[in-house]
């Protein structure tokens, strides 16, 4: 089940496990931030992590592409496999891992470069384009996938910072998509956006599900309900419940989940 992710004989209806995490512990110095989390994230699915703030959902998300490596005091234990490969193995180069597992952040963070250069950044550093035309194509494809092509195609060389918040976030998604990852991690991608921009990004997430395994951390239960197929509820560093989104929201097993979705804790 874990092997041969590149086999052509794939049945999309049958969900494959993309990421499998077992007994994951995360420590920040002396703080035990993530306790014993087991989760299996499926391919071509939107998985939502929900929970009150400080519950560890973002921290866990960041362990999936080793963004926590940049924080000195952070320590990860346990076993996280992508396509059966342990991402905390010594042989793994986090740079290659992150090319495979892209990330979109809470606040849109376009580089102070042109729109084109923002999107071309990933393909350039990973050497994905053979030549200029190739790169142009990659950029165009990524921008189209980011559902922002029509808005920016006439000003590809204008600075990315000049776009509106929602456009910036979609640009960042296009930027992440351009490196052709297999998993997209999104850390509260809509929390800095207005409702209209939010709905645009949510639509986009739904689109992306066709090609990627998407993991989204969100504050808003409505958003989780709208975009995700699977939902994981985190509380105080524990994964309390994980299952079909519909089931979590209508018929949770754990009383803590119920309290949260009915608004009693949060």
């Amino acid at each position: 089940m874990y092997d041969a992710p590149h086999t052509t004989e794939r049945d999309v209806t049958q969900t494959e496990i993309k990421i499998a995490a077992k007994n994951v512990q995360v420590y920040y110095g002396d703080t035990h931030a993530i306790k014993d989390v087991d989760v299996q994230i499926e391919d071509k699915t939107v998985t939502a992590f929900i929970g009150p703030s400080g519950c560890g959902k973002s921290t866990f998300l960041r362990t999936l592409n080793r963004m926590n490596d940049t924080i000195d005091i952070c320590r990860v234990e346990g076993d996280i496999r992508i396509d059966g490969e342990d991402i905390y193995d010594k042989r793994v180069d986090p740079v290659q891992l992150r090319a495979k597992v892209g990330m979109v952040f809470q606040k849109p963070n376009p580089f102070p470069k042109s729109i084109y250069d923002n999107v071309a950044y990933g393909p350039r550093i990973h050497g994905l384009a053979k030549n200029k035309t190739d790169l142009d194509e990659i950029v165009e494809r990524a921008l189209k996938r980011g559902a922002i092509w029509n808005e920016v195609k006439d000003r590809l060389h204008a600075p990315g910072t000049g776009l509106s918040g929602g456009q910036q976030q979609r640009l960042c998604i296009a930027r992440a998509v351009a490196t052709e990852p297999e998993v997209l991690l999104m850390d509260e991608p809509c929390s800095a956006l207005d409702p209209i921009a939010t709905s645009q990004v949510e639509e986009l997430i739904d689109e992306l599900r066709k090609d990627y395994s998407v993991v989204i951390v969100t504050h808003s239960m409505q958003q989780a309900a709208r975009v995700s197929q699977k939902t994981a509820f985190f509380h105080l560093g524990n994964l309390v419940e994980y299952g079909e989104t519909g089931k979590i929201f209508t018929n949770p097993e754990d009383p803590r989940t119920e309290s949260y979705i009915t608004g009693r804790i949060g």
């Binding site: 592409n65 963004m67 940049t70 740079v95 290659q96 891992l97 992150r98 090319a99 495979k100 892209g102 990330m103 979109v104 952040f105 606040k107 963070n109 376009p110 580089f111 102070p112 470069k113 950044y121 990933g122 550093i125 990973h126 960042c172 930027r175 992440a176 490196t179 991690l185």
Partner: peptide, 27 residues
């Protein structure tokens, strides 16, 4: 230079030196 800028670059799989040379220093 905001940390978000660096995170954005690391999140795309850039190495530290690539981030410094292509994102931090230009900024």
């Amino acid at each position: 230079v905001p940390q978000a800028m660096r995170d954005g670059s690391y999140g795309l799989g850039a190495t530290k030196s690539e981030t410094v040379k292509q994102v931090v220093l230009p900024a």
